[in-house]
Design a protein around this nucleic acid. Structure first.
Length: 193
DNA sequence: CGTTTTTGACCTGCGC
DNA sequence: GCGCAGGTCAAAAACG
């Protein structure tokens, strides 16, 4: 199968790349995948997910059921933090904030694309209908809560989907003068439309 | 020895 | 209410 090898912005910040692509699609995550499978759409996707009232597993604010007094008493989840900022009550789940997420598809041999930020892996999950696991990463910069998840498609295992959530509030930690090297690692996969 | 990864348990939302 | 799917925690292991 042939690839369209397109050039890429001379910045390794995928967040910037995502920002430049602000189309008003409001499909949810699963919707997006379904749509992609149907019409073969590939490329950068902006996911609003505003139809989904709640996100699964906002952790850290519930009392722990297995007895041990957990740190969750002092911990405030991201969502709570934002809700407090907006003057909402803790229990106001109906108005839970949905962070926009940006999906990013690349053709790559390797799963971990070096985007200049430092990430700490905090989970890995098997995903349904997919033989490859999905990996969850968090930006290690203090106070930066940007997350990303990386997943390879069963359908075409040459494609790696990276989904970013949140915005970095700090500069890139690594120099990106090895960007040429990054480009050799991956190919941006686009369809002509 | 500090940082990152691994991995099973746990949590939440959703559909039935 | 139960089971499933997705997301996260956290302790232990691996790593540099």
């Amino acid at each position: 199968m042939e690839n369209n090898f397109t050039s890429f912005f001379p910045i390794s910040s995928s967040e910037a790349a995502a920002m430049s692509l602000n189309m008003g699609s409001s499909q949810g995550f699963t919707d997006y995948f379904q749509a992609k499978e149907e019409n073969g759409f590939l490329g950068l996707i902006h996911q609003m997910e505003d139809h989904h009232p709640a996100v699964a597993g906002s952790y850290g604010n519930s009392s722990n059921s297995n007895g041990n007094l957990s740190s969750s008493q002092n911990k405030i989840s991201e969502n709570e933090e934002e809700k407090l900022l907006l003057g909402m009550k803790k229990k106001d789940t109906a108005k839970k904030i949905r962070k926009p997420r940006y999906a990013f598809q690349t053709r790559s041999q390797v799963d971990i694309l070096d985007d200049g930020y430092r990430w700490r892996k905090y989970g890995q999950k098997a995903v349904k209908n997919n033989k490859f696991p999905r990996s969850y990463y968090r930006c290690t910069h203090q106070g930066c809560n940007v997350k990303k998840q990386v997943q390879r498609l069963t359908r075409d295992e040459g494609i790696v989907v990276t989904t970013y959530e949140g915005m970095h509030s700090h500069p890139i930690e690594k120099s990106n003068d090895n960007f040429e090297h990054i480009l050799t690692q991956m190919q941006i996969y686009t369809t002509s439309f």
